[in-house]
Design a protein around this nucleic acid. Sequence first.
DNA 1: TCATTAAGTATGC
DNA 2: GCATACTTAATGA
Length: 231
Amino acid sequence: MPKLDQSLLSGLPPFSLLQPQQIREILDHAVSRRYEEGATIFREGHDADRFYLLLDGYLRVVRTTPGGDQIIVLHISPGQLFGIAPALQRATYPATSIAAAESIALSWPAGLWPEFVSSYPGFATESYKTLGQRLGQIQETLTEMATQAVEKRIACALLRMANQSGRKTAEGIEIAFPVTRQNISEMTGTTLHTVSRLLSAWQKDGVVQSTRKHIVVTDPHRLVILSGIQS
DNA sequence: TCATTAAGTATGC
DNA sequence: GCATACTTAATGA
């Protein structure tokens, strides 16, 4: 395997305080892998033997309900740690990670986690910070699901994806990874039909533009209003 | 207000 | 040309 470049990590929060020498050590223990769109990185309930860092691409983090339906819990963007079950003292992964687009990730053996935490300043605090932020986000979506009408939930989901992965184009903010109506229904606890109808209506109103697996938010402000967020 | 059923069109490998 | 993505209408909880 080729040596990995130092610049991969030096700008990322969990590693930003480290010396080049320390980053070298970390990279020398890392395994780099490419994942096709749709590929599973690890599965819910399986042994959490490694933890990961997404270098490029996007992931869906998915849980399966007792009833067998999939729920998309959150998305992972480049630069984020994921699969950090070792940090939670867990022996198994709490969710499944699937590449939403072609992706590249680094990974390390779970056994190295305590060493990372103790030897690298800032690593622990930064990891636990993202962990906390994620928990907060999940909780927020959960209460949103329980209290808000479908239209608002879908508007929120689109805004979250646009905020997290949005690229500005001439037409508006483009969601950077492939998303189907089915996917959005799995994020919002509704059906693909309802999502399809709403997106069609919003397209007619000029709020979004969508083709298959591809969505551009053309009027973010209107979408914010539709989402019912209080200012 | 929304899910379900059902029946269609569009799109990309 | 087939599977997958998407659309639309109708019906009923």
